[in-house]
Structures are given as C-alpha cells and as structure tokens.
Amino acid sequence: MDNKELQRIKSRKLKNSVFHGLIFFCTIFGVIVLALLLYDILKKGLPWLTIDFLTNFPSRFPKKSGIFPGLLGSLWIILLTAALAFPVGVGTAIYLEEYAKENRFTEFIKLNIANLAGVPSIIYGMLGLAVFVRALSMGRSVLAASFTMALLILPIIIISSQEAIRSVPSALKQASFALGTTKWQTVTGVILPYALPGILTGTILAISRALGEAAPLIVVGALTYVSFIPKTPLDQFTTLPIQIFNWSSMPKREFQNVAAAGIIILLGILLLANSTAIILRDKYQIKIKD
C-alpha cells in the first residue's frame, strides 16, 4: 500500500468517527433535554408542592392556589373516557381481526382509522363542540369532554389492540375451534386472555395521552378558573393540563412555579399510569405461566 492509499483510508475512518460522534449527540440530545426539563420543573415546582396545593381551589394568590378541581376534573374525564373508548376500541379490533371479511369495506375502515390517528387533536375538539356540546345538547360538560376524548384515543386503542390480537398464535385459535367452540367463545376463551396484556398496555398509553391533552378540551369549553368540583357528568369542569396552561399564562411570575408544581403532579400521574401498565402486564403473564 502506498502513502496515498493509507491517507485515503485514514480520512474515511476519520469521517466515520466524526459522524459517529454527531449522531450519538443527536441521540443523547433527547436525554439532555429531558434532564433539563425535569430539573427546571422540579426546581421551580417542588417548593410549591404541598398538601394544600392538592386540596385547594385556584386563587388569585399564588400561595393559596391549588389543583383540586383540575385533579377531580381529570379523574372524571379519564374514567368516563376509558369506559367509553375501551369496549368500543377492543370491540372494533376484534371485529377487524376476527370477524370482518377481507374486502373493500374492511380496507376502508382500516384506512379510515389510520387517518383518524393523524387528525390533530384540536380538530376533535371542534367535532366535540359541534356534535356533543351543541347538537346533542350536552353543554360544556364532563360528558361532552369524555365523548370527545374517547373518539380522540379510539384509533390508538384500536391499532394497539389489533396488534395484540394479531400476535395470538393461530395454533391456539385452531385448537379452540377444533374443540367445537363458536367464534365468540374462541375470542373470549383464547384470544382475549392471550392478547390482554398488549391490549391493556396500549389502552393505558392511550389514556395517558388523553390525560395530558388540553387543546380539544379548551375548544369543547373547559373552564380555566373553577371554584367548584363536578358532581355529575353534566357539570362543567376544568382539568389538570388546563389549570397548568392557565397558570403559565398568568402575568405574575410566581404562578409559573405553581404551574411547575402542577406539571410535577401531571407527570407523576403519567408515570404511575405507565408503571401500572407494566406491572399489570407482568403480573398477568405470571398468572398464565402458573
């Protein structure tokens, strides 16, 4: 090998190293941002995180502000949303994977679901405003918000449930059918138990998404300043993210710290939800093994 060639190999190797460093930085960029974000929020929010903060109503005074109505509003909406979206989402997935014939109509439904997954969340808010709030006269209520959120997360639940159902080995389905069971019996006896961990994980992720959403609820008409808690699904409401949004846009600087405290609660709940998903999944898998 002459000198020139060595030089060329050297430069190619150098290029590779530089590139390696560059894309490694790209990857840890996310880690850095996440760390920065958490540090910033914890620093600002932790001192404000008190029991009073959890149990108080919003106030003009940062020190007296609390997140109670938002917490309860979010809880109401999440429970109703899950109750609406889970059966419909899983049912749709079962329909598409086990019942629907392979034809144009089924293709159309699938394409439609994929498209819905890409519709901006604020558009769902407008749907909710026009259909649930106005046309069905639910008003700016918990119920209208829950229907809106249910439609928003439906595509996510459907798509993840479809994947979970598709992962059920066909040998198990055949074994069930060969024992003289109907389709629905096979669905409940073999397919759902096997797919349940995947379905639950997908559903919890979808619900986490709903928990963090603010835009569609603002359009549906969530309140930003609430001095009561919803008692029925037809009451007005606010939610955690909307309270955070409201505090962030207050001119008084201290409210930013209140917002940070709210974010800690929100992220804490999301973390809890996701760990629950993982624990639930693991526990269930052990049960199958025994």
């Binding site: 974000l37 986490s208 959403e213 603010a214 993210p241 955070i244 962030s248 974010i263």
Partner: peptide
C-alpha cells in the same frame, strides 16, 4: 418517555426555559 410528555409541558418549557 420524551414522546409521552404532554405538549403542555413542552409549552411550559418553551416559555420558561
């Protein structure tokens, strides 16, 4: 995790950081 952070939190991050 980064993908699961709600956009409101990024909004706050934009505003304050």
């Amino acid at each position: 995790i980064l993908a699961g952070v709600p956009s409101i939190v990024y909004g706050y991050f934009a505003l304050t950081t």
